[in-house]
Amino acid sequence: MASVDTAVEPNDSAVSEPEIGGVRRRDFINIAAVSFGGVGVVATVFPLVNQMNPSADVLALSSIEVDISAIERGQAIKTSWRKQPIFIRNLTAPEIEAANKVDVSGLRDPETLAERTQAGKENWLITLGVCTHLGCVPLGAAQGEVKGEFGGYFCPCHGSHYDTAGRTRKGPAPTNLEVPEYSFLTDTVVKIG
């Protein structure tokens, strides 16, 4: 591509006698042409980069409906949403109590259990099963797994402990386990995403 600031050096002194006004008009047309080329290149780059964004079929799967009727108190299930694990946990009364006893102001990421669940459904803790540190899947959802020092989840990669509200309590995780957007379609069916 022609760059404008490389001056048009006439190769031959005898011919370099253009009218003063002409020079400006010429420069203008060169600048316009090169700018247009630049705009064209930028406009072309957009789709070439945008193609890396999630494709239509990936986006289409971005909401799932989960039947939670089979989850007993104290149990949790691991399901997958957007190819990431989701923990759906039916909290027991002592777990809820333990979560509510905590002084929120002292937490790294202050949130109450009520803020992390839906009104009237405080026993349903729905979080992404992705450690907020570097993305490993914490333990604690399946039966018999280590639940960490706070009875919630424990990430074995770098030792992050989450409590029964899925809040970060110890270790390198900077924030609480993410709560995805969800809604209860009925008492037993929850739509995530």
């Binding site: 022609a2 048009v8 006439p10 031959d12 011919v15 370099s16 253009p18 008009r25 010429r26 047309i29 060169n30 316009a32 042409a33 090169v34 247009f36 080329g37 064209g40 406009a43």
Partner: peptide
Amino acid sequence: FLLIATILAFLSYKSIWAD
């Protein structure tokens, strides 16, 4: 877009070669 860009490029070409 290409039509306008090409016309501009053509005019630019003409003016550069005018000498």
